[in-house]
């Protein structure tokens, strides 16, 4: 497993290509979320008061707890990458498992929040019953909340699937200090998804706090 694929000259070239490919992909992801963030920023400026009030419908304590979970999972991911570099298979498996479990916890909390919103009739297009002067803008805000956190959660679920696959590969001893580009790339992806949440959390949850 230490020879490069047929079209590469050597492992170094293959590794550099994989890393650059991942970075370009993350640029794509930034633009993908960027469209959403731009749209949100626009409405936030045009409906500032209504959005600040609607943000209080979200429980910042749950969001903060989930932020802590996600940051810890990123630490586990960083440790997993280090274990892969050093060729410590057992550590690699351990940290990959920890990362994906924390990721799963995050998604579970997210869905608990969604269920809570549904119980409070706060899901636009499904069950929405808010009265009052800013009902429509609240609906707009919550639409963004569900789309943005939903797309983010989808990225989390994809990430967890990748991590589980990597865990299985690590168990079979596929990775070595020379050959672990997949772990590095999964790490980049995981940190990226983490960073998206770091922006989403204050933007959605903390807006109404002041």
């Amino acid at each position: 497993m230490t020879t490069p694929a047929h079209h590469f000259e050597d492992l170094g070239q293959q590794r550099e290509a994989a890393a650059l490919g991942m970075w370009v992909f993350l640029v794509t992801e930034i633009l993908f979320f960027g469209g959403l963030f731009a749209a949100f920023a626009f409405y936030r400026s045009t409906h500032y008061d209504a959005f600040a009030r609607a943000a209080n419908l979200l429980d910042w304590r749950v969001g903060a707890g989930n932020t802590a979970v996600l940051i810890t999972s990123s630490l586990m991911m960083a440790l997993a990458v280090r274990a892969a570099r050093l060729g410590r298979r057992r550590d690699l498996q351990l940290f990959l498992a920890a990362t994906s479990l924390l990721g799963a916890l995050f998604v579970a909390v997210k869905f608990w929040e969604y269920a809570h919103k549904a119980a409070e009739h706060l899901v636009p297009g499904f069950d929405f019953a808010v009265e009052g002067p800013w009902a429509q803008e609240t609906r707009l805000f919550l639409g963004f909340y569900f789309v943005m956190t939903g797309v983010h959660a989808l990225h989390m679920v994809i990430g967890i699937c990748v991590l589980v696959t990597l865990w299985e590969m690590a168990r079979r001893g596929v990775f070595s200090p020379e050959r672990h580009a997949l772990v590095e790339n999964a790490g980049l992806y995981w940190h990226f998804v983490d960073i998206v949440w770091i922006f989403l959390f204050p933007m959605l949850y903390l807006m109404g706090a002041h």
Partner: peptide
């Protein structure tokens, strides 16, 4: 698709969308 399919009105002027 979210607006048309799921009723989440991001661009719907009736709820302040543009």
């Amino acid at each position: 698709v979210a607006e048309r399919g799921l009723g989440i009105g991001i661009f719907d002027p009736a709820i302040g969308g543009d």
